[in-house]
Design a protein around this nucleic acid. Structure first.
Lengths: 216, 216
DNA sequence: TTGTATTTTTAGACAAGTCTAAAAAAATTA
DNA sequence: TAATTTTTTTAGACTTGTCTAAAAATACAA
């Protein structure tokens, strides 16, 4: 249907669209670790195929078709991640690269059956919502720990940074999806956040607090 | 590790090597539905990487390394086919194309865990042996129905033709893996074979008899 | 064994996707 | 608003894998 490169561009544009409506050439280049000139070339191809809205120098947005394709890739990615963790017992920090390859397997019938096989999960191992076969999914109303008030409590429900390094750190601290925590104090000097979990205090840096999401 | 094209060439060469030691450029071209000139180009690349033994005009054979890679691709293909049929309940005639894509997912850890998840199966849905993680597998000592004597009986255990059309035909006739049959008669006029299965007679053409394998 | 047919290789071209370097447009700043 | 910086695009080149057409090697047949 679409080439590997096309799918990766659509996914990148989708991801960047969540932050700001219009996506710039340089943003895409950074996201895909490629050069702006390569991006420009590809944008013309995607525009020709009516997958994006593109006018020179004006940045891009996905068309309805483009967004559908992107959401479908994300659905495939997250279902494979769920499979790898729940069925093959990989750890949550080990699955991203594999799912990155698996998301390009083209059969939708395959993905729908995989979905059914696993009991139609709604969240992947990192807490991200899994779109259903029509592309619908709950938007995440999660908050970064760094944004909530002192004495708030909530359930760890997602991450912003999906890197192995970050996920391994969280694992080590016991800060995994589903854990209940209370924000006790924010140290003004360096914005270190003091949490309480299982009646024990735990300090996390501003960076970590920015990338760890809770449901209130 | 290796490109998609390289993997497909190695697989094709491996497959053809089972019939005759040395494989010709034209054979590979036919197998991959490409042109002889394209094959020549790729053979030089594979030889440079020490995956095949190649001298101009002399045909090719796999090196030890090349064979290892090829067997690993076959292992991946057959495990995914098994997964698709046993876990996602696809029919045996529906899985080839999907597995053709899935076999290129590169992680060996993934494949080893998939293998374990399914209980280390030794045969794929078409009766072909699945290499273990060291590349070892039982060679098929199966015989085409067309080659056995009248009154022989045996268990349907494999196919030579993996096309949907053939597999669907077998399914319709009930000629599936595991069924016990007896060869009753070979009609000399056109080599039609008369079988008995579940106490009923069944006629199959020479072509079908050539592509259906039994264990005695 | 010589000529013909077949197979294989070479030569040159093309598409996809990438790159560097330079030009053009837009944004920023003074 | 004019000058400078940043962003984006264009131009031209490279790689992988493919193709067609022609040349070279091998196989076959009289």
């Amino acid at each position: 249907m679409h080439t590997l490169a096309e799918e990766n561009y659509l996914k990148a544009i989708y991801k960047l669209s969540l932050i700001a409506e219009n996506v710039s050439t340089n943003q895409i280049a950074a996201e895909l670790a490629t050069k702006a000139s390569s991006v420009t070339d590809m944008l013309r191809k995607l525009a020709d195929k009516l997958l994006i809205n593109y006018t020179r120098y004006q940045g891009v947005s996905l068309t309805q078709t483009g967004e559908k394709v992107a959401v479908n890739i994300i659905r495939r990615h997250r279902l494979w991640e769920y499979f790898l963790v729940e069925k093959l017992h990989f750890k949550w920090d080990e699955v991203h690269e594999m799912a990155e390859e698996m998301e390009h397997i083209s059969s939708n019938e395959l993905i729908d059956r995989l979905d059914e096989f696993m009991g139609f999960p709604t969240r992947d191992p990192h807490g991200d919502p899994i779109p259903d076969c029509n592309g619908n999914f709950k938007t995440n109303d999660l908050k970064a720990i760094s944004t909530v008030d002192v004495n708030t409590c909530g359930i760890i429900s997602g991450v912003r940074d999906h890197s192995s390094a970050f996920l391994q750190y969280l694992e080590k601290q016991g800060l995994t999806i589903g854990k209940k925590i209370t924000i006790k104090e924010i140290i003004t000097y360096d914005n270190t956040v003091v949490l309480q979990m299982n009646n024990k205090d735990l300090q996390i840096s501003r960076d970590v607090a920015n990338n760890l999401l809770i449901a209130l």
